[in-house]
Design a binder for these strands. Structure first.
Lengths: 221, 221
DNA sequence: CAAAACCCTACGGGTTTCCGTAGGATTTTG
DNA sequence: CAAAATCCTACGGAAACCCGTAGGGTTTTG
């Protein structure tokens, strides 16, 4: 089993719960960081001391930082950590249930497990850590659909740009101008119209208003 | 100090954290329920046995109930509990940070404390419980603005009706018809237009699309 | 009870969305 | 390199939105 594990989690009552779970499965060294930067420094120092961590268990959102952090989120922490130490195993432990973000984490960042902070979070976390040790992937069953549903339609950064500006109250003509300002192509009103029409179709929205409601629920914006 | 406290919280790792906090402040009897209905039954039984609870610490959202519950949320649990036992003190312990919902809980349900599940949740929870014992109200400082900001403009159930149907993709004509179906007045297209115009003005939205984006962030829909 | 105030509704016209068509530019392919 | 396919853009008309105005109904007030 893993020898040395780092927890990155801002909420005080959470980290104690995680620590209990890890002790249950006989992990001798469990350290703990409340901020992303702090977590990264601990990982780095451990590497330099030639006593690297085997596993990182990280939350995604770190709120209420009084002192602004370089790394703002769990995603960034995991990405940096893997650059620093490619062999490091990583487990996400989060309340996030938006398919779009889960897909991103599992496919792009290639985490070893995604555990949802829900009813059986403690139990699942133990299982996830054990599977990770055997190089097997784990995801909370209720969220597995996020990875299965290819959703056929891939949402691009361009789409997110359109949606964000729509949500800010710009009309299609203004979005077209904004695209020109940012040197993003295509930028014509007609193109904006066409792309938004596609988005409406793939999300089954009757109009732009509903499209924003739906994509907000999906966590795209 | 309180003698007997009930925790209503679905996530396993959470409730253990809360239990630790309550033991720290010398509360002798701490019980625990994972579902709302279970919590309510425990409260009821304690009353019948003439050993009622002094305090209820409850989460708001209870997800992933395999067996459907009569009480679906912390709000409902607290409302029922207060009907059953008017002297019962109540503390909300939740991740919810939407001003609209916090206002509703503190003003209508008249809870004794609202503690946000954030960095110092454990510490704040202890403080909140002690203040509740002295009949003083507590709310996590970062959320206090939700109660201060009168927001001048009162959002009515009628408004929420309009917003919800807008977010479902109905246009103003269809909403007017829906109002007529539900025998809600006023129901003309013109009235719907007028009210939505007011909503746009009070939320500083340029159009209906942005209005939905904003009110979703506020937690109204 | 009549005037005033208020609310609901109806209507008109300017703007934006919505959708199809079509022409020109760029890329792919044989 | 020419044909085909794909993409970007332009345009026009119907529908929805946005906003002001105005008439008819109800409630309030002196």
């Amino acid at each position: 089993m893993f020898k040395k594990v780092l927890i990155a989690e801002d909420a005080d009552f959470m980290s104690s719960g995680i620590k209990v779970a890890l002790k249950d499965i006989q992990i001798p060294i469990v350290e703990y960081a409340q901020y992303c930067d702090e977590a990264f420094l601990k990982l780095k120092k451990a590497c330099l001391d030639n006593e690297p961590f085997d596993l990182l268990v990280s939350d995604l959102s770190f709120k209420d930082n009084i002192n602004p952090q370089r790394l703002q989120s769990g995603e960034e922490l995991i990405a940096e950590a893997k650059k620093l130490q490619p062999t490091l195993k990583t487990v996400v432990f989060s309340v996030e249930d938006k398919p779009y973000r889960i897909k991103q984490l599992c496919n792009e960042l290639e985490v070893d497990a995604y555990v949802w902070k829900s009813n059986h979070g403690q139990k699942e976390l133990k299982k996830a850590v054990q599977l990770a040790y055997n190089n097997e992937f784990f995801i909370t069953p209720q969220l597995a659909h996020a990875l299965r549903d290819k959703e056929a339609f891939e949402v691009t950064d361009y789409d997110v740009f359109l949606l964000q500006h729509l949500a800010e109250g710009l009309d299609q003509k203004e979005i077209s101008e904004e695209l020109k300002n940012n040197k993003i192509k295509p930028s014509s009103i007609s193109s904006v119209e066409k792309r938004l029409k596609l988005l409406k179709e793939s999300f089954n929205a009757n109009n732009l208003t509903q499209l924003i409601a739906i994509t907000k629920d999906f966590g795209l914006i």
